[in-house]
Design a protein around this nucleic acid. Structure first.
Lengths: 186, 186
DNA sequence: ATTAAGATACCGTCTGGACGGTTTGTCAAG
DNA sequence: CTTGACAAACCGTCCAGACGGTATCTTAAT
């Protein structure tokens, strides 16, 4: 007993680890697989330890949400700075993120979140809020039908990646991206 | 006791009722709300009765899946018969279904299924199979980049409807539909 | 036409386990 | 020596599924 008591205390690292494990579990076994027992055990922490960092399960999911939307926001902001054309700027940044994430390691985290989003009414509401905020912010530049369509298509591709239902090869993917970028300029 | 024992036996009707109730519950309370107790009680059947028709919970969800994909298949087939152009015929039928379902009452059942799909790894696999089967069947006519993109965009719109994240008005919706049909002809 | 013999369609209860959360205890760092 | 970071045991609830029964239906031999 008390084996883990003697390791050096690294609260921030443990917190990070818990979030990572929660994401991985949700990917591998679905949202139902994200139980306090499973997460804490896989992270090498007791359940009490988990509940010390996140007072309840919802807080854990909220933590995931904040983590990932935070990353998304930063990436989008960065992407937008390197785009000289105002019209559709946000949409193109969004496209970049989606197309980048479908191949990178970060993708798993987002796949997880999407699934959780759909199942958890509370997180659905938070996502709704995120979309509404950004729609308001970029109403002048990104509310054309073309932009909307481009973002929808990106979401569809994203969904297909999550479900692994289609297997889109890289050339086709790039062609689609070019097409959607053109759409965002309309 | 045994009050319901004496009603006339209508196995097919009871089965149908159980599926309907399961769909309704999942819509109203999320997937977590679909418990054997809740379903059986709301359907006016004992839990034993439910487990007679569906030997376990997964079988119940499978039943839902079969029911709904069956309906989808029939609708698509019907839609395809009234389309004289071969190229992109399946994609246009798919579009019709998605656009129709985002407004009709049947939509609720599909929203439910989509959510369940994403959460349950087993159902995700079944959906993957459905897509693969149809991709094979229509490989000659519906595998162009335009068709793929059109279907992705439809999925994105569908997702937005489920999450109620965007509020797309009817004129925009129709414009998008026209655009996607044009894409399917490329 | 009757009826015995199964098959089918249920009912109602019980149980074992999982899960979210609480409480109490312990150690170590500042 | 106080406080933050955990551990470990425990609790109440909920839920999937098993089980043993009973009532209705079907079939087929008489």
């Amino acid at each position: 007993m008390s084996l883990a008591h003697h390791r050096r205390k690294q609260p921030e690292l443990v917190r990070q680890q818990l979030l990572e494990v929660a994401a991985r579990l949700s990917l591998e076994q679905g949202v139902a697989g994200v139980t306090l027992d499973a997460v804490s055990q896989a992270a090498g922490v007791s359940k009490g330890g988990l509940l010390h960092h996140f007072p309840n399960k919802m807080a854990l999911l909220d933590g995931l949400f904040d983590d990932l939307t935070g990353k998304l926001d930063r990436t989008i902001e960065q992407e937008m700075r390197s785009d000289p054309v105002a019209h559709g700027r946000f949409t193109r940044a969004y496209l970049s993120c989606v197309f980048a994430m479908t191949d990178e390691t970060d993708a798993q985290g987002w796949q997880v979140l999407t699934i959780a989003l759909l199942s958890e009414p509370q997180l659905r509401a938070r996502w709704r809020l995120w979309v509404a905020d950004h729609a308001d912010e970029f109403v002048g530049t990104d509310s054309s039908a073309g932009c909307l369509l481009a973002r929808f298509a990106a979401d569809g591709l994203w969904l297909a990646d999550i479900l692994k239902s289609h297997d889109v090869d890289q050339p086709t993917r790039q062609a689609m991206r070019a097409h959607l970028i053109a759409l965002s300029l309309q």
